[in-house]
């Protein structure tokens, strides 16, 4: 029976996948993100980043105080190409 501990729901990354990345030397969050795909799916790490960062630090023997988030890449929420392709409003409105 599959007993996966899912650390990144969007990309189906398991705790074992993180252990494997650490064993290969990819224990920094940015490295493990690239090796396992964690945090690269629809949620962009909103749900998983903190837990993964902490788990990797502990697995690699680094103190939690050194844990850093991965670079926050825009957009924070997915945005349709059609929204971005619309005409600009040259005017300026008030609140």
């Amino acid at each position: 029976m599959a007993g996966k501990v899912i650390v990144c729901r969007c990309e189906d990354v398991t705790q074992s996948d993180l252990d494997h990345a650490v064993a290969l030397g990819y224990s920094h969050l940015e490295e493990a993100k690239r090796y396992t795909g964690l945090g690269t799916g629809p949620c962009q790490g909103k749900e998983c980043m903190v837990a993964c960062a902490l788990y990797l630090a502990l697995a690699a023997g680094r103190p939690p105080s050194e844990v850093r988030p991965f670079t926050s890449r825009p957009p924070v929420a997915a945005i349709a190409l059609g929204t971005l392709a619309g005409p600009d409003d040259p005017g300026e409105g008030g609140g």
């Binding site: 629809p42 670079t71 825009p74 997915a78 945005i79 349709a80 059609g82 971005l84 392709a85």
Partner: peptide, 24 residues
Amino acid sequence: LTTLAKELVRVMPRLAGVKVLRQW
């Protein structure tokens, strides 16, 4: 984003509803 989206949607109108996840 806006420069790219205008050109991409012009060439592939069907992509207007497709969402950008990440830029770098």
